[in-house]
């Protein structure tokens, strides 16, 4: 587990300050999307090895939601962005 996360608002902090929500790649389907699309979004998750994007919340710090891009095999952290900013880029 990556033990130091560089929060864009608070600086480098230990992982104990964060809550990990899970995969940040699924995109919420449109409200009236097919049932299958909603089923995929709500229940199906890949379990990849390597470089992943995850939602982390800095609960003991600024309480902002962050997107952490890290390698779950080598524990290397590639980048941390505020989820609001990351969301703007995706749209």
């Amino acid at each position: 587990m990556a033990s130091l996360i560089s929060c864009p608002h608070c600086g480098t902090r230990p992982k104990e300050e964060f809550l990990i929500r899970g995969d940040a790649t699924p995109v919420r389907p449109a409200p009236m999307a097919a049932e299958e699309a909603w089923h995929d979004y709500a229940h199906l998750r890949a379990n990849p090895r390597g470089r992943i994007r995850e939602h982390w919340q800095h609960v003991a710090g600024c309480r902002r939601w962050l997107v952490v891009e890290r390698d779950n095999f080598t524990h290397e952290v590639f980048g941390v962005t505020d989820a609001a900013k990351a969301g703007e880029g995706a749209r």
Binding site: R13, P14, V59, A60, G61, C62, R63
Partner: peptide, 8 residues
């Protein structure tokens, strides 16, 4: 805001 032991 920091974590002190287990308290924010």
């Amino acid at each position: 805001n920091v974590l002190c032991s287990h308290l924010s």
